[in-house]
Amino acid sequence: MSVRRATHGGSWYSDSPEELRKQLDNWLNAADLTHGPARAIIAPHAGYQYSGACSGFAYRQVSAVVVRRIFILGPSHHVRLGGCALSTATKYCTPLYDLRVDVKVNADLDATGHFEWMDMSVDEDEHSIEMHLPYVAKVMEDYKDSFTIVPVLVGSLTPDKESVYGSIFSQYLADPQNLFVISSDFCHWGHRFRYTYYDRSWGDIFQAITYLDKMGMDIIESLDPQAFTAYLKKYGNTICGRHPIGVLLQAVNSLQKSGSNGHRMCLKFLKYAQSSQCNNMNDSSVSYAAGALTIE
């Protein structure tokens, strides 16, 4: 049995089960169930002191009684990857309890010929998937023995590849027992991120960042993958999970094209936050957004 350790516990989030549970409870209780049951959520992956409260708005929309499998799509921060990679681990540790990896779904995905496998060192270095595990463990706590996870590391995909992966995942998205967690922060602004786009007509810097992010969020809500690609090309907004988001939009697109029993799909953003307020060109910030997709 191959176990992935909780390598960011104790630094990016609390490794004390009591403290972590209390914190997650507080954040979930502060959010309202307004757009659920979610079939997919978009939530950030920064340290919990920055983004934990924002994530609560996405996880609040999850109906644990329905969900039996959770796909977690996170961007690769440390290795160059032209496609998507699966985990060799059979268990992922969290301070609350261990999560079981769905080895059968991994085998099915591998059989498509479109996935590679990540080394355990790559898996344990990456935070974009791990930062969702405590939240997953918390919302699924009453059903901890009856669900599995499918962690997927998403590389720098071309629009065509996003479409390929979207069509592969669409069959899973169609199943109400599956939940997709899309891991993404929004604008990384400042010299340290090599991104300082600023349109003064949009107000102060922090207001301009908000405007830029909201424009992207509106396009994501429209569920139009081509429009999202065009937006990224035009503004270069540093949304680190743009490829996982692109894959989700393509999966939705693929479902719509298949005329999937006239399902109504609706994606809404429920919360937006920034790590700090940028007022001059030497400041920096990271933006966070929480959204949920419902399928009726």
Rank of each mutant, 00 (worst) to 15 (best):
T7H: 00
W12T: 08
R21I: 08
K22S: 15
D25E: 15
H35F: 12
G36I: 07
R39G: 01
A40E: 01
I41A: 05
A43V: 04
P44Q: 07
H45W: 04
H45G: 02
A46G: 11
A46P: 06
C54K: 07
C54T: 15
V62G: 05
A64T: 04
V65G: 06
V65D: 14
V67G: 01
L86P: 04
C93K: 15
C93A: 13
L96D: 05
D98E: 15
L99S: 08
R100K: 15
N106V: 02
N106H: 10
D108C: 09
D110G: 03
A111H: 09
T112V: 00
G113W: 11
M118W: 12
M120G: 03
V122Q: 12
I129E: 00
K138F: 05
K138M: 05
V139W: 01
V139R: 06
D142H: 09
D145M: 07
I149S: 02
L153M: 14
L157F: 04
Y165S: 01
F169K: 01
Q171F: 04
L173T: 08
D185K: 04
D185H: 06
H188M: 02
T196P: 02
Y197D: 06
R200Q: 13
S201A: 12
D204W: 04
I205D: 03
Y211D: 13
Y211Q: 13
Y211P: 00
D213R: 13
I219T: 13
I220W: 10
I220D: 04
L223N: 03
L223T: 01
D224Y: 00
P225V: 07
P225G: 06
F228W: 12
Y231N: 14
P244D: 02
Q256C: 01
S258K: 10
N261F: 08
F269P: 04
A273E: 15
A273Y: 09
Q274D: 07
M281C: 06
S284D: 08
S285E: 05
A289Y: 12
A292K: 08
A292E: 06
